[in-house]
Write a protein that binds this DNA or RNA. Structure first.
Lengths: 195, 195
DNA sequence: TCCTTAAGCGGAGAGCTCTCCGCTTGACCG
DNA sequence: CGGTCAAGCGGAGAGCTCTCCGCTTAAGGA
């Protein structure tokens, strides 16, 4: 659809500079200091340039996360031969850990543009993966919708709220998701109907 | 816990003035113009006063919504004698309409403080209601967690994304929720327990 | 009624995100 | 190799949310 022509060489160079600068600011000064002014200064470019490359703060943060995520995807690929239910579980558990590890960063992204998440690379990929697994597990179900809902479990603000205010551990979340998956499998059971 | 002493008379008066002013700004100038500066001016108080009464923009908006919601709660009470599954469905469908009607306002609240929702009066009430209904429908399930997740379906940004980018109607959402509820009921069916 | 004081008030200003627009430069073409 | 121009650049500034703090006032006891 939106097949824009490739970035000019200087633009690509700046993109990298900004991403690297952001990572540096993040580790040295913490997420709270990750203002785009600060990033621009660290990268040695103007604020305008940052906004030209990244549209808004959330986009920059999601791109940052995206770069860290290849590791997770690779790891998940090792489960390729397990049955769908196990694969889905493994994926959802992995996602929980991922969300937990990056929670400060994700919270930041959500705070600046809440709906940005749905347009981000990671979300799109996760949605596709979960949809496919659901199709294998529960043919006939509305997998696209259910995938949306399952992924909502990883909304940074919710996870934070559950941890800080409800006092729940991450286990409670993954177990809740597991039983939900069982429920979905039960109503759309492919072959093994109750004996 | 947080049993603060009641507001002073002038404070209560200002609270009302601000809430009314906000409602007025909202209808006359639209959600986009609902800055707290504008509200303060309209109400004839200082910005500091607005923040003293409401902590942040999201809180003000949620309080505004809260005032409109009594109608919904009253309407739902009429289903009191139906079986749990029907009641839960009715509640979830009502919630969908409510979210749809207030979507501009809810989007605004989410944009300013994403996690504010979980602390809002409406969310707390909805969570309690859904938990109770789930307990009746599926004893033994982790109703508190499932209620969280079901309510995530009404996240303003998600609803907006599903409508605008995925091109889904509200019906698809409510149907998805219905089948999910069936799934929950199926894995924890009260009637099929060994007697 | 007067005194005391916690609560409330207002608005200047800090600090942020994002826009706008005049200037610069890389990429491509003849 | 020189010319053309879309793309990129920088940073001033608009507009927002929220904080801070010196002044004011409601409320309740003596």
């Amino acid at each position: 659809m939106t097949t824009a022509r490739p970035e000019r060489a200087d633009a690509a160079r700046n993109r990298r500079k900004i991403l690297d600068a952001a990572a540096r600011v993040l580790t040295t000064q913490g997420a709270a200091s990750l203002s785009l002014d600060a990033v621009a200064k660290e990268a040695g470019v103007g604020v305008g340039t940052v906004y030209r490359r990244f549209e808004n703060r959330a986009r920059l943060v999601y791109e940052l996360i995206d770069e860290n995520e290849t590791r997770f995807q690779a790891e998940f690929a090792t489960h390729a031969d397990a049955p769908p239910r196990e694969r889905l579980r493994a994926f959802l558990h992995g996602l929980a850990e991922l969300a937990d590890d990056n929670r400060e960063l994700l919270l930041l992204a959500e705070a600046s543009v809440p709906a940005g998440r749905y347009h981000s690379g990671p979300f799109r990929r996760h949605h596709e993966q979960v949809s496919q697994l659901l199709d294998a597990l529960a043919p006939g179900a509305d997998s696209a919708y259910l995938a949306d809902l399952l992924l909502m479990a990883y909304t940074p603000g919710l996870l934070d709220f559950q941890r800080e205010h409800r006092g729940w551990s991450l286990d409670r979340v993954t177990q809740g998701l597991d039983t939900l998956v069982d429920g979905i499998a039960a109503t759309h059971s492919p072959g093994q109907l109750p004996s």
